[in-house]
Structure formats: C-alpha cells, structure tokens
Design a protein around this nucleic acid. Structure first.
Length: 255
DNA sequence: ATGGTGGTCCAACCA
C-alpha cells in the first residue's frame, strides 16, 4: 500500500496538480487537507475516472478533508468523539483492514491565542479517540497536516522558531502523547536529506530560500511500522506554477 | 523591525 498526504490549499485551484500527481505516482491512498470545498461541489468524477473511490468532509471557505482510495473505504467517521466541532478536519476510514485517520490539525495561530488552546484540546480529543480505536484496529495510520514540527531538525531556523506556534513544547508534547500510543513517524525510519521540509510559507520567497518546516506527517502504529518499506517527501509539486504551500509526503507499506 | 503571499470571495478571515 502506497499512501500519501497533501495539504492542497483549495482543491478547486489544485485539481490539475492532484490528478497529474496521481497519474504519476499511482498512490493507493491519498489524504487531502484544506480542500476548502463544500461536499456538493466535490469533484468526484475527476477521481472516479482514474479508478479511485472518494470520501470527503468539507465546508465553505475553510478546512475540509478528503480520502482518495483505489480500494473500498468502510466505517467512515468525520467526528472526534467528545468534541462538538463544526470545523471539518477529520476523515477516518478503513482500507484493506488498515484504519486510516486523515487529519488537518488546527494551526493554532500563536501560543497566546484562543486558537492555540483549541489546537491543544483538539489534539487531546484525537488522542482519546485513537487510543480507543487501536483496540479494534491495531493496524492504524495517522496522517495529514499536523501543524507541528516534531523536532528542531524539522525546522529551517530552530532558534527563530523556538517556542513559536508549530514548534512549541506543548504542541510537541501533544504529538509525543500520540507517539506514546506506539506510533512511529515513518519518515524518520529512513535516511533523509538534511533540510527535508513539507511546507514553505508563500511569503518572503521562503521556498526559494529553503525556509521550510516538516509539519506533514505519516504515523504508523506499532503493529504496522515494521511493514513500512519507504517514506519520502515529493518536492516537485511545490515547484509548479501556482502551487500549494505544502508538498506531498509518501509512505509505502507491504500490507 | 516589519511585512511580505495566497485562497476565499469582495471585506476580512485564515494560514
């Protein structure tokens, strides 16, 4: 199973990039975030014509997640229990016995903001739900835009980002609490180039200046991690005309 | 030190 995550920052604008990428990479599962697309406007046919099934949970203007899969998706969930959240940020489904959570973790804005508290509460609700579901689905993958850089090596300028949102201790602790359930950040299971990032701000020519963060992650549960054979970041879509500010992250499993 | 770009949708928000 080849699985990937990509924050597309508007599926309407990026649909040609996504379709071209699927034709090239032939992923089995692609998790999209920030589709910014209402469910009635989702471009279903563009994916079914390529032989994919689609599931989506969208809203107007903001957020929105989707799963594109060659195989059938079952037991689809779009809510975190205990969280009454109108923001469409979660899409869970089971594919070939593997439980997959596509996540658009709140950005958090800044550590002194209400949005940061929402982010921490959201991550706690996520941990609670994943912890419960692991009993039924030991083979589990969490992937998406985590809006957290796990370690300083995932940050172009750790000193400048020290304590800032996306890098703060509380966020990294919340990510560690997920990893403590047995999950592994599979990108780090393999040799990677220095300065491997998945997001670059549109501003200040950050991409050209290699000023990025690795905030798009694929976490595999303890029973799945040994079946992961590769993981990489595909930077090519970030070089295209009118790109998303994020680029795809890929992992391959023998299951 | 500040603000810079981009998407949505047309003013102001979110990132």
């Amino acid at each position: 199973m080849k699985i990937a995550t990509w924050n597309v920052n508007s599926l309407r604008v990026r649909i040609d990039h996504v379709i071209d990428w699927l034709k090239r990479e032939h992923a089995d599962v692609l998790a999209l975030q920030e589709t910014k697309t209402k469910d009635e406007d989702f471009p279903i046919d563009a994916f079914t014509e390529l032989g994919y099934k689609v599931q989506f949970s969208g809203q107007k203007t903001y957020n929105g997640v989707a799963l594109i899969s060659r195989q059938e998706m079952t037991d689809v969930r779009t809510e975190l229990s205990g969280l009454n959240d109108p923001q469409r940020r979660v899409l869970a489904a089971t594919v070939d016995g593997v439980r997959i959570h596509n996540l658009y973790v709140p950005n958090g804005q800044s550590v002194d903001s209400e949005k940061y508290q929402y982010k921490l509460g959201w991550l706690e609700a996520l941990r609670n739900q994943v912890s419960l579901e692991l009993a039924d689905y030991p083979n589990s993958i969490l992937l998406g835009d985590f809006n957290i850089a796990p370690e300083d090596r995932d940050v172009h300028d750790p000193a400048a980002w020290e304590g800032k949102v996306l890098c703060s201790h509380s966020e990294r602790d919340a990510l560690k609490a997920l990893l403590d359930l047995g999950f592994v950040d599979v990108f780090r299971s393999f040799d990677q180039e220095d300065a491997s990032y998945s997001w670059w701000d549109y501003r200040a020519a950050a991409f050209r200046r290699k000023m990025g963060l690795r905030i798009d992650l694929i976490l595999a549960s303890g029973s799945l991690k040994d079946s992961c054979t590769a993981s990489r970041i595909d930077v090519e879509p970030r070089r295209l005309e009118r790109p998303s500010d994020h680029t795809p992250v890929i992992a391959e499993f023998t299951v």
